[in-house]
Design a protein around this nucleic acid. Structure first.
Length: 101
DNA sequence: TTCTTGACGCGCA
DNA sequence: ATGCGCGCCAAGA
């Protein structure tokens, strides 16, 4: 396997503090891949379920969860964020208060 | 090997 | 605010 990008990305996501969120694009940029937000999404999708990384703190640039509203995954992520004190406004995170960086 | 997909993002109308 | 097109690029069919 090629742990390079993966490890770096996972590490970065791991540094997102509780109560805040980052966009796929931001994480990608920090990892040195500006322009490739999809890379982040793909890795998260293929990440092992037993991993402890806070994947739920990653949302799209609009502050919305990248899953169909009402879907199982959507509910899960929303719930995790709510538990950390993240507030929403019409299915969108209040970026003004929770945006990382 | 080519074509389609997709946990994205940005510029423009 | 909303929709559309295009760029990105690895995985799957």
């Amino acid at each position: 396997m090629e742990p390079d990008k993966n490890t770096l990305i996972y590490t970065i996501i791991g540094t997102i503090p509780i109560g805040s969120v980052a966009s796929y694009g931001q994480v990608a940029a920090l990892a040195g891949y500006p322009q490739n937000a999809r890379l982040v999404g793909r890795l998260l999708k293929e990440m092992p379920n037993d991993s402890t990384i806070p994947w739920h703190r990653v949302v799209n640039s609009l502050g919305k969860i990248s899953f169909a509203v009402g879907s199982d995954k959507y509910q899960q992520q929303r719930q995790k964020l709510l538990l950390e004190g993240v507030t929403f406004k019409n299915e969108k995170v209040n970026m003004r208060e929770h945006q990382w960086l």
